[in-house]
């Protein structure tokens, strides 16, 4: 009986708000959690749109794309938010995404030219360590050192894939040799970012693969300056996170309105201290205090999205053979 009344309540609730248009956004799980940007973004957009913004969390970026592929053209999503440049080519191939008309002054170095996807934040992969540790500043020296690192599996984790592309773009054909050098430094490879970051915090490794913005969390949220990132001579691989509008959306105007809102200050100023990434467009008031202490790479590395697929396959094969010897 109890369930029946709950169900009845749900129906009543749905019909009451039926007049307000609903914009459904699929995103990765940590975006919608209480500690992510989701709640604040929802509040800010609903103040201006006269709509109901509904976030749906589905695993991480790769799971998100799989989800959209499974649902196909019938998906209820109006917008998918949280793919990165490693996934945009595969997402484009599905033909499910529509063109956008958003332009903005993007903060990342290489500019932006993509008909379907609009960036909302970006990050830089880096090894994070305790501030008092003197660490090597390139992959060769790291491989020669006896420091212990913990990384993520590129087959199941976005940062793991980022590291794979980082080594491959920096070293090309020499990448296998770099991985062979690193093999004895790698304590272990974890399924996702959380496991390895947890192991690093517990003291199981000297460094962990994460983002240059990770120390900002400890500095700003915990007032703890004991962590920093290492700047590498070969440059750092970047991750640009994007959103796209579904071609079959029943709310095309609202979706366009959201994409434009996404590159505005109201959205962008939420990102740094909730998603712990750089905003795609630097807000008028600048970055939060503490971000000026972060490592800024001399060179940003990024593979063009249409070349990702081929490089990824080759790099994965090299990674596997170097680490399974």
């Amino acid at each position: 009986m109890k369930y029946l009344s709950i169900a009845a309540g749900l129906f009543a609730a749905t019909s009451a708000v039926a007049d307000t248009p609903v914009l459904t956004i699929y995103t990765y799980d940590s975006f919608v959690s209480d500690w992510g940007p989701g709640p604040a973004v929802e509040k800010a957009f609903e103040e201006t749109c006269g709509c109901d913004l509904k976030f749906v969390g589905a695993g991480d970026g790769a799971a998100l794309l799989a989800r959209v592929k499974l649902e196909g053209a019938r998906t209820e999503a109006d917008i998918v938010l949280g793919l990165d440049t490693n996934l945009t080519a595969a997402a484009r191939e599905t033909g499910l995404f529509a063109d956008h008309s958003v332009t903005a002054e993007y903060a990342f170095p290489m500019g932006w030219n993509d008909a379907q996807f609009v960036p909302f934040d970006w990050g830089v992969f880096a090894f994070v360590k305790n501030a008092d540790l003197d660490a090597p500043t390139n992959f060769r020296d790291l491989g020669a050192s006896d420091l212990k690192i913990v990384i993520q599996d590129p087959r199941s984790s976005t940062p793991g894939l980022g590291l794979l592309m980082w080594v491959k773009t920096a070293y090309g054909d020499e990448a296998p040799a770099i991985w062979e050098g690193l093999a004895d430094n790698i304590v272990t490879v974890t399924k996702g970012w959380s496991e390895s970051y947890g192991m690093f915090i517990e003291g199981e490794a000297d460094m962990v693969l994460s983002y240059t913005t990770s120390p900002a969390y400890h500095l700003i949220a915990e007032e703890d300056a004991s962590k920093d990132a290492v700047k590498f001579d070969e440059g750092h691989y970047m991750q640009i996170e994007v959103a796209g509008k579904l071609a079959n959306t029943d709310q095309p105007e609202l979706a366009d309105q959201f994409l434009a809102f996404m590159v505005s200050d109201a959205f962008q100023s939420i990102i740094p201290t909730t998603n712990w990434m750089y905003p795609a467009v630097t807000p008028a008031e600048g970055l939060p205090k503490g971000f000026e202490t972060l490592v800024v790479p001399d060179k940003g590395l990024l593979v063009a999205s249409d070349k990702v697929q081929d490089i990824r396959e080759e790099a994965l094969a090299e990674w596997l053979s170097a680490l399974t010897q």
Partner: peptide, 8 residues
């Protein structure tokens, strides 16, 4: 994966 120490 975690305790196995890598892709092996």
């Amino acid at each position: 994966l975690t305790l196995g120490g890598g892709p092996k």
